[in-house]
Write a protein that binds this DNA or RNA. Structure first.
Lengths: 194, 194
DNA sequence: CATTAAGTTGACTCTATGGTTAAGTTGACC
DNA sequence: GGTCAACTTAACCATAGAGTCAACTTAATG
C-alpha cells in the first residue's frame, strides 16, 4: 500500500533489471558491512546508479531491506530453525541453534536489526522476528521439560542474550573467531541446571 | 591545548557561574537518559542558554563530557573498584564488582561510552577506561590463582560481556530490574570452574 | 528508424546536528 | 552611575542523510 515500488514479478526493461540486480548486490554488501543503516547514497554509488533509482525501484530503505533480507539473513535464520528442529536431543537442539545463530550474527551484523524490530512496518521482518521468538520459546519449554535447561532461564533471557551479542558485534570491537566461540561455550554452560 | 574552555579554578562572573551550573545539570540529565550522544542543542535549551554558551564554557562536547563524567560515572566506577578491592575472598570480590558495575550500567547508559572509548582524546575518559581494564585483569588473575574462576575465562571476555550488556541497555529494550538481576546470576554462574 | 512509455538523474528540499562569530548585553569595580 | 572586560547569543556555516521531482535519456516496438 505505502510502497511506491513495482510489484514483484512485473517485467522490467533490460536496463532497469540490470540496475535492480546491481542495487541488490550493493545493498547486500553494504548491509553486511555496516548493518541496515548504511547510507543509501553509498549503496547507489556502489551500484553505479543515482539514489533516486533506489527510490524508483524499491520505494525507499524499507523496501530495499525487504528485498535483500531474505538473502542476507532470513534464509539462514529459517535454515537454522529447521536444522535445530531436526535434532532429537533437547539439549543438543539448543546447542545447535545457539551455535548457528551466533555464527550468523558474527558474519552478518544486520541480523541484530531483525531482533530489534528496526522496521516494525515490514511484514517480512516482523514475521522473521516472530518466528525467532517462537523458536526460542519452544526451545526453552522443551529444555525445561527435559530437565536440561535451568528452570529460571526464560525465553526473554534468550532474546536478551542474542540482542546483547548482536549489538556488541555491530557496534563494539570485533572479537576474533576463537574468542567468540569460547564465549559461546560460556553462554551455553550458563544454561545448564544449577 | 585543543580546548577553548577556561582553565578550572579561574573565577567566573556570577552569571557565567550560574550558567555553568545549569549546563552541567542539564548535561547530566541528558547524558543519563540518552548516553553521551545527546544533542547539545537540547542540553542548551534545558539549561536555558544558547548552544554557543556551551562552547564558550566547555569548548565543545568532549569538554562537557569531561566536566560531568566524574559525577555521572567515574566516581561510582572508582568506588566500585575500591569496594571490590576491600573484599577478601576472590570469588566474592568478583561478585561484588560485577554486581556493582552492572548496577551502574543499568542506571547510567552513558557508562558504555567509557568502555567503547568513544572519546579517545580525553585523558580523563581514557584513564577511567584503563583503570577498569586493569581491574578486570587483576580480578581475573586472582580468580584463576584461587581456583574460583574457570581457567579459560580471560579479561577480554570480561570486557566483552560488559560491552555487550552496556549496549543492550543503551540501544535495546530496557529489561525489568528483576530480569536484569537474574541475568547477572547467569553470568556469574558461567564463570565458575567447569 | 520514429515514436513513446519506461526509466534515470541532477538538483533540489528538509531535518538534524556540530561548530563559529560579529554584535549586543551585563556584572563588577571605581 | 559610568566604564569595560566578561559574557551571551542570534544568526550564521557546514556536514550528513532522507526523500522528491521536472527534465532528460533510452529500450522496445511497429
Amino acid at each position: 500500500m505505502t510502497s511506491g515500488a513495482r510489484a514483484t514479478g512485473a517485467s522490467l526493461r533490460a536496463d532497469a533489471a540490470r540496475n535492480v540486480a546491481q542495487i541488490r548486490a550493493a545493498a547486500i554488501a553494504a548491509f553486511r558491512g555496516r548493518g541496515l543503516n548504511a547510507p543509501l547514497d553509498e549503496i547507489a554509488a556502489a551500484a553505479g546508479v543515482s539514489k533516486a533509482t533506489i527510490y524508483n525501484r524499491f520505494g525507499g530503505r524499507q523496501g530495499l531491506v525487504e528485498a535483500v533480507i531474505e538473502e542476507l539473513v532470513a534464509r539462514e535464520m529459517y535454515a537454522a530453525m529447521d536444522k535445530a528442529r531436526r535434532v532429537e536431543d533437547p539439549w543438543d537442539r539448543i546447542v545447535t541453534y545457539v551455535t548457528d545463530v551466533r555464527d550468523l550474527q558474527y558474519r552478518e551484523p544486520a541480523a541484530v536489526d531483525v531482533l530489534l524490530k528496526t522496521y516494525p512496518d515490514s511484514e517480512r521482518l516482523v514475521a522473521l522476528f516472530e518466528a525467532a521468538k517462537d523458536m526460542s520459546a519452544s526451545l526453552v519449554r522443551q529444555g525445561h521439560e527435559a530437565g536440561v535447561l535451568r528452570q529460571d532461564f526464560t525465553a526473554a533471557d534468550f532474546y536478551y542474550a542474542a540482542v546483547a551479542n548482536g549489538l556488541a558485534l555491530r557496534d563494539g570491537p570485533k572479537p576474533s573467531r576463537e574468542d567468540y566461540d569460547r564465549r559461546a561455550r560460556f553462554f551455553l554452560d550458563s544454561l545448564r541446571p544449577h
